[in-house]
Design a protein around this nucleic acid. Structure first.
Length: 305
DNA sequence: CGAATTTGACCGGCGC
DNA sequence: GCGCCGGTCAAATTCG
């Protein structure tokens, strides 16, 4: 398949899925970064990069992520469809795989996820904690703040404080596996039917104590092979898969996701602080695995099975 | 037997 | 005010 067609395929995915995502939250700023070439549990796509390898803290400008990752700006989200909105701190990165051998499950070991060697494309929508953050997650935040998990519902915030909402990132991934391994441990706490979709949405919470991170997993109603995983919040701990030892000694999949997520999360926070300087949206794309290898030389060492 | 998942109920926000 | 919907809770159930 040519690069052009890959790109068109990407755009199709974004158009349908991300537009739907964004349309659900018309007031949110959003950044979309594709989760990119990922591997099943059995494989490694992301390289062995530790947090120390990338100056996350120094990523202050809006193109930091692409720069760090070696990405290039492709197009504004507007080009992808109605989901794009102006005025929001949005960033879209598409990490595509031209080889057609990628699967979305980030390896974490332990779970015997069977993934067919289907072509996989991942994307990530990051909704930066923006100016319109209060509504959606208010109750969750209040609950977290109060450390109250026993009450059925949360109390309203009488003080009217507007807490900064955690950034949200929606990975759009072609996968036959719903729950993608990402190196963290999750507990499912709910499942809801999705309107206009035969596929339910699952709600997960990070099992680490006091870690506020949640994620939602749902399948596209249009393409059942597409899984949309939305992360919310930042982990207050390191990836469990990496704490046992040096990340450099771990298999790439274990750290790759946490690396990438934190990279993206970091970027989203930066988006928050630099929203005013941001273009409406950027679309960036990895088209080929080879690019990743260029970016992350260690990838070549870990290789693929 | 403890941990994880399932699932129906419940609540708050929002649009009409 | 009402109904719809998204998100969460928690008891029951299943799993390892």
């Amino acid at each position: 398949m040519s690069g052009y067609h890959e790109r068109e395929h990407f755009r199709s995915l974004f158009h349908d899925e991300l537009a739907a995502l964004f349309s659900q939250r018309p007031t949110d700023g959003a950044a979309c970064i594709s989760g990119g070439p990922s591997r099943s549990d059995t494989g490694a796509i992301f390289p062995a990069v530790t947090f120390a390898d990338v100056p996350l803290g120094s990523m202050m400008d809006n193109d930091a992520l692409p720069r760090v990752c070696g990405l290039s700006c492709l197009a504004p989200l507007d080009a992808l469809g109605p989901g794009g909105r102006t005025g929001s701190p949005e960033l879209m990165v598409a990490v595509g795989n031209g080889s057609g051998s990628l699967t979305p499950a980030f390896g974490c070991g332990g779970r015997a996820t069977t993934v067919t060697p289907n072509s996989s494309t991942s994307s990530l929508s990051a909704e930066a904690a923006g100016e319109e953050d209060a509504d959606r997650c208010k109750k969750e935040e209040q609950q977290e703040e109060e450390g109250d998990t026993s009450k059925k519902v949360k109390k309203p915030n009488k003080q009217g404080e507007r807490r900064q909402r955690e950034p949200r990132f929606a990975f759009v991934t072609e996968s036959e596996v719903d729950h993608l391994e990402d190196g963290y441990r999750w507990r499912k706490y709910g499942q809801k039917a999705v309107k206009n979709s035969p596929y339910p949405r699952s709600y997960y919470r990070c099992t680490t104590q006091k870690c506020p991170v949640k994620k939602r997993v749902e399948r596209s109603y249009q393409n059942s092979t597409i899984v949309i995983t939305t992360y919310e919040g930042r982990h207050t701990h390191r990836c469990p898969a990496t704490v046992r030892g040096s990340t450099l000694l771990l298999p790439p999949p274990l750290m790759s996701t946490s690396f990438f997520q934190d990279l993206v999360m970091q970027q989203a926070h930066q988006l928050t602080s630099t929203a005013n300087q941001m273009p409406p949206l950027q679309l960036l794309e990895f088209s080929h695995y080879g690019l990743l290898q260029d970016m992350f030389p260690s990838l070549a060492h870990h290789g693929q099975p």
